[in-house]
């Protein structure tokens, strides 16, 4: 128990460093841009417009009673949080190699500070979702109370992946490139821009993807007014918790090798 808790405790004592690094990332990201904070909205908004053109006009996807722009934005928003965090995290240790080799600190702060700053972007970009819902007259019901649970599961999963990926990229520098391709395929295997129906053999394979229940979860509680499918969401939660525990433990045990292998 002692050894399992140690990384978390060490992280807690260094929480000021965590916030300082996250705010550094945010300040740098927004300082030199004309649009400032509006940049956080740029990617999901552009993607929404593109996918609306493709799937609502050309391919005519059936999204039930929900207008396609809201449907796709509600998927792109959490996906962008997931993909953006991991893209930043995979390089978080190698980008800070000078600090890793020169100064001691729990190295978990680098990937986690990155997740934290992406979380702020996620919050900013979610204002647009509220705007879209108001525009299309979709009022959230009591199920919105379940929203924090989905956010927590998603954050846990992102943290777990972030720790593992940043470490992998430290040892093998091409993990970053491989992961970019994986991420693109992963997006189309997830119900981000179209609903995924899990029938047949491929349906069973796709059901292993823990991101689909999370994205679907957001849509359920925000747009449909019902709770997410307990089986699928339970599975995603389990994956998230295991990833986070394994990520922290493995990262912490390999930490002492970082400075000499970076």
């Amino acid at each position: 128990m002692q050894t399992i808790l140690e990384p978390y405790r060490e992280l807690w004592t260094h929480r000021e460093l965590l916030f300082e690094l996250a705010s550094r990332d945010l300040r740098i990201r927004y300082k030199q841009t004309l649009l400032g904070t509006a940049w956080a909205l740029f990617t999901p908004l552009t993607m929404m417009l593109i996918f609306t053109q493709i799937f609502a006009r050309v391919a005519k996807i059936d999204t039930g009673s929900i207008p396609y722009p809201v449907f796709v934005y509600c998927g792109l928003l959490p996906w962008q949080f997931f993909a953006g965090s991991l893209k930043g995290s995979v390089e978080s240790l190698t980008r800070n190699s000078r600090l890793v080799t020169k100064i001691y600190m729990p190295r978990e702060v680098f990937p986690i500070a990155n997740v934290l700053s992406c979380f702020v972007d996620f919050m900013v970009a979610s204002i647009v979702l509220a705007g879209l819902m108001a525009w299309y007259g979709l009022a959230p019901t009591w199920t919105i109370l379940f929203l924090p649970a989905i956010v927590i599961v998603q954050v846990a999963m992102i943290v777990g992946f972030s720790l593992l990926l940043s470490m992998a990229n430290l040892f093998y520098r091409d993990v970053k490139y491989v992961f970019e391709v994986v991420l693109l395929m992963w997006m189309f295997a997830t119900s981000v821009v179209y609903p995924i129906h899990l029938d047949g053999f491929w349906g069973k394979v796709l059901a292993l993807n823990p991101m689909t229940p999370i994205i679907d979860g957001y849509r359920c509680v925000l747009l449909d007014g019902r709770l997410p499918d307990p089986m699928a969401f339970g599975y995603a939660s389990l994956v998230a918790v295991v990833l986070m525990l394994v990520g922290f433990r493995w990262f912490h045990e390999s930490e002492y090798l970082f400075a000499e292998n970076i």
Partner: peptide, 24 residues
């Protein structure tokens, strides 16, 4: 060990004092 290792070029001196101080 290495002075100013945690400095970020785009931040001001003031911001860097806080950032580098926390890193240390």
């Amino acid at each position: 060990i290495e002075v100013g290792a945690g400095f970020h070029p785009d931040l001001t001196g003031r911001e860097n004092v806080f950032l580098n101080g926390t890193i240390l």
